[in-house]
């Protein structure tokens, strides 16, 4: 049988993160298989954003090990950059480059990271903009787009470097309710196409519809990790039941 060397795209063990003396993440053991869609929930300050930022090394780990697509952080020949290339990230505040058009935003990664020619990068960008329904807006600057459109461009930008895993940090929290649907739809399509995704969100309906796994974090630790239907139907702890009561 021909098994891939690593069945997991992301694997971290005993991952810990502290800011100064304050521990923010402790003993995180997490493995995510290719094609899995994992939703992470938890109260404010529980470390969800920090976990995503550690997974693409925007924050250096304090302890533990991290492996992404078979590349171990800190191993010979594996830089933080090598890991970031394999992970796309979508931020709550979109963070589009304000001096570049939608198309230029999406082209930057293919140009600078994948070394594509301008022509090829443009084709890549247009294909992805079409996929998120924004090819007609390619020439517009971010400030000329609605929040929902900006976030869709941001998703296209992250996809453009061909990452193996996509990380989403509350991608719809900064959006008006009527704009959330268009972003969630794009994410759901991605999930359906088999993209591996880690999503921090409070959208429980999205979790129910698209997630294979639901992770509940509290005080910097993973408290529960299970199937969403089961966890919603039968909350495994009083703490989680309480949390669900707040977000629903």
């Amino acid at each position: 049988m021909n098994r891939p060397a690593t069945p997991y795209l992301i694997r971290c063990s005993k991952l810990g993160k502290r800011f100064g003396d304050t521990p923010v993440l402790e003993d995180i053991d997490l493995s995510v298989a290719a094609g899995e869609v994992v939703v992470i929930v938890g109260p404010s300050g529980s470390g969800k954003s920090t976990l995503l930022r550690c997974l693409n090394v925007l924050e250096p780990l304090s302890t533990g090990t991290l492996e992404v697509d078979g590349k171990t952080l800190g191993a010979r020949g594996t830089s933080a950059r090598a890991i970031r290339r394999e992970t796309g990230m979508v931020f709550q505040q979109f963070n589009l480059f304000p001096h570049m058009t939608a198309r230029e935003n999406v082209m930057l990664g293919p140009r600078k990271v994948r070394g594509q020619s301008a022509k090829k990068a443009r084709a890549t960008a247009d294909r992805l903009l079409e996929r998120v329904g924004l090819l007609d807006w390619a020439e517009h600057l971010p400030r000329e787009l609605s929040g929902g459109q900006q976030q869709r461009v941001a998703i296209a930008r992250a996809l453009a470097v061909n990452p193996k895993v996509m990380l989403f940090d509350e991608p719809t929290s900064a959006l008006d309710p009527e704009l959330r649907g268009e972003v969630l739809q794009v994410m759901q399509d991605l999930a359906a196409e088999g993209m591996t995704m880690l999503i921090v969100t409070h959208e429980m309906r999205f979790a129910e519809a698209a997630a294979h796994r639901l992770i509940f974090m509290d005080h910097g630790r993973i408290v529960h990790d299970g199937r969403p239907e089961a966890m919603f139907a039968n909350p495994p702890s009083e703490r989680f039941r309480e949390f669900l009561g707040h977000v629903k």
């Binding site: 796309g88 930057l108 930008r157």
Partner: peptide
């Protein structure tokens, strides 16, 4: 962050 996350 967005730039670094792209792999720049």
């Amino acid at each position: 962050d967005a730039g670094l996350a792209l792999g720049l």
